[in-house]
């Protein structure tokens, strides 16, 4: 509105905005800004959502070579019981061939179990390859049907538009056959 003030030329105090008016405006603007924060923050995850339980998964029913999906915080988590060959493939890849270089060791706690969040790092689709018979992509891992990203048997991005490897959630093995995710 300061534009209008100059043009209409009938406002005596517009040209000598004194300290008091400026200070009051500043305080008012700051106050309004702060008043907006509760509204913004109310859209962040609420306390009950943050407290959502972790999931415990029994691994004894997953045969070698197969994988399952479990829900954790509203997202699928892939748990794959890897074969010797898959483990070897994952370990043998040279780091300089990877888009997002990470060793297989850094991504698993027990070699035979790969646990990753099943959300493509490109735009959030669920990659295929968990259920038996689904396409696993060119690297024995997962294949994302949305835009053709290929993940290897360590969940690392190998081909396609996705920028990063599948995320490894925090988890702990409670026993040899039971894992707690989250």
């Amino acid at each position: 509105m300061s534009q209008t003030a100059q043009s209409s030329g009938e406002n005596p105090d517009e040209n000598r905005r004194d300290f008091l008016t400026l200070a009051t405006t500043a305080v008012g603007v700051v106050g309004t800004g702060m008043a907006l924060w509760p509204f913004v923050d109310s859209m962040n995850p609420s306390k009950d959502v943050l407290a959502l339980a972790s999931v415990e998964v029994n691994l004894s029913n997953i045969p070698v070579g197969q994988a399952i999906k479990v829900m954790w915080r509203g997202k699928p988590v892939f748990i794959r019981h890897r074969t010797e060959r898959e483990i070897k493939e994952a370990e043998d890849v040279a780091l300089n061939q990877l888009v997002d270089p990470e060793t297989d060791d850094a991504r698993v706690k027990k070699k035979e179990w790969l646990i990753v969040v099943g959300v493509c790092t490109h735009l959030g689709c669920i990659p295929m390859g968990t259920a038996t018979g689904e396409p696993r992509g060119d690297f024995d891992g997962w294949y994302c049907p949305c835009h053709g990203s290929h993940y290897d048997s360590s969940g690392r991005i190998r081909k396609g538009p996705a920028p990063r490897n599948l995320v490894v959630p925090t988890y702990t093995f409670l026993t040899d056959t039971s894992v707690k995710i989250g």
Partner: peptide, 12 residues
């Protein structure tokens, strides 16, 4: 504080 300031500006 803000209201007191607004009152002062208003007076002026």
């Amino acid at each position: 504080v803000l209201t007191a300031m607004l009152y002062a500006v208003k007076r002026k």
